[in-house]
Nucleic acid binder design. Structure first.
Lengths: 271, 271
DNA sequence: GAGTGGTCTAGACCACTGT
DNA sequence: CAGTGGTCTAGACCACTCC
C-alpha cells in the first residue's frame, strides 16, 4: 500500500494518507479511524509504525484516541470568546453600582452570555513572597509580601474549567480592607475592580500580554487538554490613575477552545 | 532504578525523574540529557521506553533533540513582543506622511526596534474566490472575488520567519488603484493603511481575535516549530469609518517566541 | 469474550554528527 | 570511526469498553 519509490519513513507516508482522508472528508469528524491492526495490515507495516503515524495526527489535533474504544476524527472545538476590551470597561463601570445591582451578574457571564447559575467558581487566597519576575512587574523588591489569589472558573454542566487564573496584589495595600484578605468572601460581587475601589484604587490602564506554551502536566489534567494542544497565557497588568501597578494576573486558557478578542478604536484623521 | 511499588508506566516514571532533574537545575538549560542507551541502562528499561519518556519532555517543551548529536535541555525562548494597539494607531498616523517620511521605517521595525535593513520581507498577491468563512467576515456572498496577499517577515540574520500573514481585500475595491493589485509594488512604504488611503478608505476600528492551535506540517516547517509547540493565530478585522469591513487578515506566529500586547485605556470614573 | 488501544521488550539497521 | 538519535519489526501482555 505504501509506495516503494517513496523514501520517506513509512509511518509518515501512512500519516500523510490518513491526513488526506480526513482533509478530503472521506473520514468525517466523529468517524472512527480503522483499528491499529487493520491499518498495519493495510499499509503493510508494523503496529508500532501505525501508532507512530497516529501520534503525528494526534499532535496535529486531527484525531482523538480513546483507550479501549478507538481513534476518532476530531471535530474542531467550539471556541469560547473572551472579549477583553469590552469586559474591562464594563467591569469598571459596574464597580460603581450598589450591591444588589452588582450581584446580578459576573464578568464571565457578561463575556459568555451564560446565566449566573451556569457557572461554578472556586477561589483560594494565600500570602506569598514576591518572586523576582513578579516583583519586577510591580516595581517592588523581590520578597515583598503579596496576596496570591487563584481562581478556577467552570461551566456547571461541564467538569472542565474555562480557565485557571492567578492574581497578585500588594499585601499591605489589600490589607487596607481586611475583607479583601479572606477567600471566604468570594465570589465577590463586582470583582477585583470593586474590591480595589473599597481601598480607594481606580484602575486606569490595563496591559495584556498574550503568549502560548505547552501545558504543564498539571494544567493538562485540570483543563483536560490533549497532547499537542497548547495553553494561551494572558498576563494582565493593571495600573491605577497614578500609573502605579496595582494588580498582576496570569490567566491560563485551553488553547483549543478559547478566542481572546480586542476591539481597538483608532483616532480619526483630521479633515 | 524505578520504584517497584509505583505502578505508573515506567516511561512516565523515567519522564518524571528527568523532569525533576530539569526543574531542580541539576540538568541546566543547554546541557545534554544522557544518551538513550545510558538512560535505558540507568532506569533498567528498553530504549523504546526511554524514547517514549523523552517524547513526553519534548511535548512539554523541556528538551530539544538533535539527530546524531543528542538531547539537550531547552532554554526558554526569547519572546518577540508584538504590540498591537500602539502599532495600529502609529500605522494610521503614518499613512498621512509623505513618501520620503514613510519610507524610513516599517511597522515591524516599529514593533521590534530593529533597523529597516534587519528585516527581510516577501509578498505574493493572488485573486481568490471568497470561501464561506471569510465571505461572512466581509458580509459578502461566498465566491466574491478577493485579493489574497501573503507575507512572510523575517529577521535577515535568521532563516526563520517571525510570522506568516494572509490578508484579504475586496478585489473590486482594491482595483480602484491598480497599483494595489501588483505585488511588485511591495514592500509598500506605509503598509495597508496607506494603500487603503489611496482609494479613499480610512480604517476606524480594528477587532483582533486570538486563538492557538497545533501547526500544520507546512507551518511547522516554515516557522521551524518543534513538536508540541502551537502557533498563535491573530485574526484582524478592520472596519472603515462607515463600519464596513475592508480588510481581513490572519497572522500566524510561532507560539514559543511571540508575545502579543494590548494596551487598554479605561474611561475615568466621574468624581 | 472479542476487540480496542497502552505498555514493553530485544534486537536490527539506518542517518547524522563528531573526530 | 564511534556515538548519537531515527526507523522498524514481531511478538507479548495488560487495561479498557462493549456486548
Amino acid at each position: 500500500m505504501t509506495n516503494p519509490h517513496d523514501f520517506r519513513p513509512r509511518y509518515m507516508q501512512a500519516a500523510d494518507e490518513l491526513r488526506e482522508c480526513i482533509r478530503s472528508g472521506r473520514l468525517a469528524p466523529g468517524e472512527p479511524v480503522p483499528s491499529e491492526p487493520d491499518l498495519a495490515e493495510r499499509f503493510a507495516i508494523s503496529r508500532t509504525s501505525v501508532r507512530h503515524a497516529i501520534q503525528l495526527l494526534r499532535d496535529e489535533g486531527l484525531v482523538r484516541t480513546e483507550h479501549g474504544r478507538g481513534t476518532y476524527v476530531r471535530a474542531p472545538r467550539k471556541h469560547i470568546r473572551s472579549p477583553r476590551t469590552a469586559r474591562y470597561q464594563w467591569e469598571k463601570e459596574r464597580a460603581l453600582l450598589d450591591d444588589a445591582e452588582r450581584a446580578q451578574t459576573g464578568a464571565t457571564e457578561h463575556d459568555t452570555g451564560l446565566a449566573i447559575g451556569d457557572l461554578k467558581f472556586s477561589a483560594d487566597y494565600a500570602p506569598v513572597d514576591a518572586p523576582p519576575g513578579i516583583a519586577e512587574r510591580f516595581g517592588v523588591p523581590p520578597g515583598t509580601r503579596l496576596l496570591c489569589r487563584t481562581y478556577e472558573t467552570s461551566v456547571t454542566r461541564e467538569k472542565v474549567p474555562l480557565s485557571i487564573a492567578r492574581s497578585y496584589l500588594i499585601y499591605d495595600m489589600a490589607a487596607g480592607n481586611p475583607a479583601l484578605l479572606d477567600d471566604a468572601n468570594e465570589p465577590w460581587a463586582g470583582g477585583t475592580m470593586h474590591q480595589l475601589r473599597t481601598i480607594g484604587v481606580e484602575i486606569d490602564r490595563i496591559t495584556d500580554e498574550i503568549t502560548a506554551r505547552p501545558p504543564t502536566p498539571g494544567e493538562a489534567q485540570i483543563l483536560d487538554i490533549e497532547r499537542g494542544v497548547s495553553v494561551i497565557v494572558l498576563c494582565k497588568i493593571s495600573a491605577d490613575i497614578t500609573g502605579r501597578v496595582v494588580e498582576f494576573s496570569e490567566v491560563v486558557f485551553p488553547g483549543d477552545r478559547t478566542e481572546i478578542v480586542y476591539d481597538i478604536q483608532l483616532a480619526r484623521w483630521a479633515n
